[in-house]
Design a protein around this nucleic acid. Structure first.
Lengths: 241, 241
DNA sequence: AGTGAAAAAATTTTATCATTTGTTTTTTCT
DNA sequence: AGAAAAAACAAATGATAAAATTTTTTCACT
């Protein structure tokens, strides 16, 4: 017990240290990234350096460096001599993102099913289970993004591709996932029927664990297509308002 | 004729303007990127800000921004509070890169063959033809990297995936290609037999244009595996020296 | 006089640099 | 060997120059 506690403390300490010794650039990068993905910073918004120095409480250099990093995540666009803005959203971009995600994650899942071991299977089952227990919305009447749900949802989807054997590919899936999350947050914040999403997740887990390639890939694609088409209509509505 | 000339001049002017009004950050980014890919900046090399300000003739801000951009290209690693270095090379990294390239480019080629039109086919044939006419080495006795060859070789391989319908995927292929190019430049600079490479390129073009999916994917994978295994032994030698 | 294009002036904002601050690494000394 | 001091370096700040944008003024023409 005493040992457990000390391990816990050590972990926390190291975590604190990490934050403490993180450069301002890294901190600002994380904050801004999150602000763009959650939609606090709106698509197309002009990112003025001076304004940002005030909101994030740091000088211009860390801001510019963070913006440069975000550029490569395709969350920010740079236009030489005329600054940075949050990338726009469009149905075309969304369609391309969705298509790419289906293709690439199918590929990564296929590879994972070839290489994955028991531990990998258990990771998926566990992630699906934990996710199913969480409410999609943080409030029961109106929809409020639930960070915990977001985290576990990402964990579940990333667990599927985690055994593909290519950290490069995993990183790519991660980026695509985050881009999609931005669209999800921007879409009309209303609570979709949870039950079917969980059913779909479970169906995927089951097919994957039983190593049914055909079915797994089909179910994953259908899942993306279904949630995607709902999101799409929200985006159309958003863009016409 | 007079009109032609004026068009040409306009083009050149706009090109000049672009360079002129490019920020130092962008210029330094391009230069450093090229220096890392061609191996002028060696793997693992410590990238000291002060040193870089001298070699590239700009202040520290553009340097740091360029380094941030290169970080996302996986050509540079950042270590908070202890600066930047050129990413290391290793056989493990190379193997993963090769594997990922085969998987992702096969996927993109498959999609291209589904969507590509006549113009796309002609682009491939033309690129292969032009490439076949260029010498792999700029000098005939010792091996000297030939920029023209490098450019056309990239054009050929990118042409294959260019009709996949996803600019996101194309950009990813582009990045992977450049990472591989670094390994190619780092490998023992010796002139490989050119003839077989051209034969392989032609075989791929022919299969792709005749829309033979099975054969195209196989030939592409074999091509990568073959050039990859030669490269690999050079890298092993390099790392043991 | 009134409209609107063009020019000029004022303002904002970006990009860059020189300098300071704080951390890491190396050297010195006990 | 290990603490203390010195040097080297990264990171961040704030100031300045250069460029873009916005606003105001001018002026030709109905």
């Amino acid at each position: 017990m005493a040992i457990e506690k000390s391990i816990l403390l050590t972990k926390m300490d190291s975590l604190e240290d990490q934050t403490k010794f993180q450069s301002r650039t890294s901190q600002v990068y994380s904050s801004m990234r999150s602000d763009i993905i959650t939609g606090i910073l709106r698509p197309g918004h002009k990112l003025k350096i001076e304004e940002l120095t005030k909101t994030y409480g740091v000088g211009s250099s860390p801001i510019r460096e963070a913006l440069s990093l975000l550029t490569s995540d395709t969350l920010v666009t740079r236009n030489d001599q005329r600054g940075f803005r949050v990338v726009e959203v469009s149905t075309e971009e969304f369609d391309e993102l969705l298509k790419t995600r289906v293709l690439v994650e199918q590929l990564a899942l296929k590879e994972s099913m070839l290489n994955g071991d028991d531990i990998w299977e258990e990771k998926i089952i566990l992630a699906a289970h934990r996710l199913s227990r969480l409410p999609r919305s943080a409030s029961s009447d109106i929809f409020v993004a639930n960070d915990e749900w977001d985290n576990l949802h990402k964990k579940f989807h990333m667990s599927l591709v985690s055994a593909c054997g290519s950290s490069i590919l995993i990183k790519f899936c991660d980026q695509l996932y985050d881009q999609n999350t931005r669209y999800r947050h921007l879409a009309a914040p209303r609570s979709y029927p949870m039950r079917e999403i969980n059913v779909e997740h479970d169906a995927i887990s089951t097919a994957v664990v039983s190593r049914n390639k055909e079915s797994s890939l089909k179910l994953l694609a259908d899942h993306y297509q279904r949630t995607g088409s709902r999101l799409r209509s929200d985006i159309v509505a958003l863009l016409n308002s």
